[in-house]
Each structure stands twice: as structure tokens, then as C-alpha cells.
Amino acid sequence: MDGGDGVTDAPSWWDDDDRLLEELGHAVREARVPESFVRAGKAAFAWRTVDAELAELQLDSLLPAREPAGLRDEPRPDGSGPRVLSFAAGELSIEAEIHPDAVRGQLVPAQSGAVLVRDDDGPVREVPVDEVGWFVIEPVPARRFRLHVRTSAGASVITGWIDARP
């Protein structure tokens, strides 16, 4: 029962019944990882072949207006509200508000999809976009980031860099 067939330097987990049973228990229990943990991993593959079109910055409430304020449709923020950014690629716009606790954004026209947050090191995390185009990134990324948006209809665009704490 101790595998006494000439194996002298075998690891004890192998030779000893109690140790083998214990190690087997660890192995079986360890594989019981939460389903959400595995699901997130599988979902990542959806980003595999996504080539993204660049969404140009249209508005950053922190920057001075690039044209006389009177010519602009958007009301100028008075500095008390959240910073507002807007990006556009073709027909798709990405609006993002930087709040202290989170980045809250919306796709226009409203549609569902997913947003991938990327920083200089690469992809960081994915958040869902609901049917009315809303998404929330919480907390606000500490480092500069860009948003890679994939819509359910198959469009894929990526914003320029956003520094939430300039």
C-alpha cells in the first residue's frame, strides 16, 4: 500500500495514504471556484479580435472652449458639476462624467454593450453597458485611462486618453 516498488525518493504525498487523501481533498476543493470567477475569464475572449475605431474628443468641460461660447450648443459648466467629456466616432457618441466616486457614462444613441477600461499597462477591467446605454466605472481609475466600447450591434470604438485627476 506504500507503493514499495523501489521508489525511495517519492514525495510523501504520494506514498502515504493519509497524505494522498489530504492532498486529493485540497485538489478537489480548490477546483470549486465561484462561477462568477470563471465566467469573467471566459467573457474576456470577446475582446480578442476587436479592432477599434478612434473616438475623437468633442468636449472636455475642463478645457477652455475651442470656439466662442456663443456658438456652442452645450451649456458651459459653471465649475460646480462633474467634469464632462464627450467623444464621437461616426454616429456613436460616448459621454462620460467624472464624479468623485465613479465615472458615469452613456452611449448615444442608447444601446447596450460593454466597456473595457484600459491604462498604460493594458486592459484593466470590463463593465457592462445597459439597454439605455448607461455604464458605471467605480471607483474612478487612479491612472490615466481610455475607454474601449463594444456595442451589441458590433461597433467598436476607443476613446483618447482620459486623466481623471489632471
Binding site: P34, S36, A44, G122, P123, R125
Partner: peptide
């Protein structure tokens, strides 16, 4: 918990790009 989900999500997203 959800922290581990976040970490794993980031790891797998990186691997997709590194494949």
C-alpha cells in the same frame, strides 16, 4: 469575493491580448 473576480478579470483580459 468580488475583489478576486476583478483581479481575475484583469488577468484574463491581459492574457487575451498576450496570446
Amino acid at each position: 469575493g468580488s475583489d478576486a473576480d476583478d483581479v481575475a478579470g484583469g488577468v484574463w483580459l491581459r492574457l487575451v491580448e498576450r496570446l
